[in-house]
Structure formats: C-alpha cells, structure tokens
Amino acid sequence: MTVFKTFWKILNKNKITVIIYTVILLIFGASNMQTSENNMSFVASKPDVLIVNYDEEKGITKDLIRYITENSNIIDIEKDEEKINDALFYRDVNYVIYIPEGYNTDFMNGENPELEIKSTGDYQASFEEMILSRYIKLANIYQKNIKDEDDLISKINDTLSKETEVKITSKLDTNTLSKATYYYNFASYSILACLLLIVSLILSSFNEERIRKRIVVSNTNYKKHNRVLLLSNCCYSLVLWLFYVAISFILVGDIMFSKTRSNIYYKFSCFNNLCNNNSIFHWKFSNK
C-alpha cells in the first residue's frame, strides 16, 4: 500500500502535465469539431478537378463545363503548367481536363475531338473519368441524330437529369461521427503524451539512485514492489482512459453510446494502446 500511495502522491505532483495536455486536446479537438449542419441524406462524393479551357465558352463546351462543375469540386489554380503539375503531384487536384481550341465547332461537325487529361490515377480520379466519359459518350450518341446545338444540349441534360432514389439506413449523423473521429484522432496524442510522461516520471523517481538503494534495503520483496507498481500504472491508465472517454461523451454526445463498430473500436483501441505502453514502460524501468 505504501508503494501504491506513493505512486499517486507523485502523480498528484505532476497533475499539471495531465491538465495541460487535456486543455490542448480540448482546444484543438473543439476547433476541429466545428462541422457543418446535420446531414442525414445522401451526399455524393465530388473529386477535385481543374478545367483548362482554350475554347470559347459556348454551346457544348459551356454545357460540359457546367456538368463537370456540378458534379466535382472545381479547384482554382493559376493556369501555369508547372503549378498544375505540382497541384496534381500533391493531390490538390485529382483530375485536370484540357478543352482544346475549337472543341465546340469540331464536336458539332461530328469529328469527336480528343480531350487531353491529367490524372492522379486514384479513386477520385477514376470517378472523375467516369463522370467525363459519361457526358462525352452521351453527347456523341445524340450528336449523330440531333444536329441542332440547343436541342442536343437539352436532350443531353434531359437524360442526365434522371437520378436514382437513394435511402440511407444509418440513423447516425455522419457529421457527429466525424466529430468523434476528430476527437479520438487528437485524443490518442494526448493520452499517449500523458501516459508516457507521467509513467516515465514516476518510474524514474522510483529509480533514482538514493531511492532505489533505500528500496533495496527495505523489507519489501522486490517482486511485490514491482507488482504494486505495475498495478498502480494499470490503475492510472484505466483512470486516464475513462477520463478521456468521459470527455468524449460530454463533447460528442449521444452518438458515443451507439454500438457502431468504429465507436467500440475507438474506445477499446485507445485502452489497448494504453495497456501496451504501460507494460513496455514498466518492463523497461523495473528491469534496470
């Protein structure tokens, strides 16, 4: 009991570290958790796209740009080739579409002009290519039968406007879930820091030469001493984990009570992390 009590006394002296890391977590966590309004309906993903148009913005060119803009996030980058290449490399854009000069005229003449593209080759880029291909394919099919530009555009848009009905089964608000993700993303740093700092500080206090000598000459069995230290560390880890999970309940709310797999995973992976680190530290220090 003496060792156990001493552990908590030293912890009490270092409580300021735990407070500092918790405050940092609350500041950064809360600022990251500022998400938009609740969202319970389906929202389509939109790839980041850059359109470099060398043609006049009219007719089919204008409509193609409108369609791409509606279905993608248009990224505004200076139309300098080096800047575009950098943006593509660092995934600021997933897809770049170059519309050549005279595209509209060539298209209406049935020449099926070629479009140059740049792609990161990832998920988003593949999806953007599907969006672009859909429009071009549809426009080409109708162009063979409809010669009037306005009729053609109207027919294309008429077909593209057909949307499928979507139902979302999850009763969980995805934005609140992402709040929990932000919280636990940052909480892992705070928990680790609190654990590493405190456990190492306390164990090194026990490991100081004079203290160690005093412990060695005491009548307490060293195995029991180490066992109590390990137990104290485990208790501290448990309390710390409960404390941070409790904060998440206050900050994020009801969603933390849900039984989603990710939720359970967050809570237990944090605890698992704590246990692992604790055992490693204890082993390291008590073996000295």
């Binding site: 389906f42 389509a44 993903s45 499928t164 979507v166 089964t169 999850s170």
Partner: peptide
C-alpha cells in the same frame, strides 16, 4: 432504389453506375 448505410465514394460510384 438504392439503399446505403452512409455516404462515401463507393456509394457514389454505385449510384452513378445505376443512373
């Protein structure tokens, strides 16, 4: 009629292909 658990790129592609 499509039924999804949540939003996402996989779901968007499925919706897109169906359309």
């Amino acid at each position: 009629i499509l039924t999804f658990a949540t939003n996402g790129i996989d779901e968007t592609i499925f919706k897109y292909v169906t359309e």
